[in-house]
Amino acid sequence: MTVTDTLPAPGPNARKPEPIVRVRDAYRDYPMGKETVHALRGVSLEIAPCDNVAIVGPSGCGKSTLLNLMGVVDRPSRGQVLIEGRDAGAMRDREATEFRLRHIGFVFQRFYLMAMLTARENVELPMAEAGVASAERAARARELLDYVGLGARERHRPGELSGGEQQRVAIARALANRPALLLADEPTGELDVRTGAEIIDLFRRLNRDGTAVVVVTHDAELAAAAWRTIHMRDGQIVSQPAR
């Protein structure tokens, strides 16, 4: 099954692929009255297709801020953020929304599933927004729920699912429009160790199947499961293994 079939798997002679994320000397300042909070101070990094990156660091060091820049939710105050070759800072709101819908999957700490919708309907939501026909939507939603191990729960509403199961539905939803990049901010933050481990497994599988995964986390296990760990402190990257 090819759930994440946006990109071809690199063949034996493949050259080093173009990065899907390229952050160049990015700053993000928040003016707070007379003061300015420097959330990011000159961050540069690249994320390759099929990359699996964990961003770690103390609270307030700018991890979420960086993730938001990569997710085209926020713009750098200075510097450049290119996602799949497109300048995130230059996109208008409507373009950015459309871009997020089709190219980026978001996973949040608190799942944010729609309570009135069933698991399958939640997964279908981004596809409906993208204009996918309903039969195709339903089929893909089932396929994705199978992929995250919840095929039997498609008719259940979030209230009838455990935290771990809800997070898996949220991941299925994030994959709905076959994004090349999956961004997750503390995806195991609300889960116990065992369910957290299931999510870690799922990310790993997803990444093997061709999606670039970037997680921001305080969870050592989740960080250890990534191929690369980027360490941040005070709005800067302090160590970053080569990709």
Binding site: G71, V73, R94, T97, E98, F99, R100, L101, R102, I104, F106, F108, R110, Y112, M114, L125, P126, E129, R173, A174, N177
Partner: peptide, 12 residues
């Protein structure tokens, strides 16, 4: 927050 999540997901 639900609306924020929807907007982040790319819902117009």
């Amino acid at each position: 927050r639900d609306i924020a999540a929807l907007r982040l997901m790319g819902i117009s």
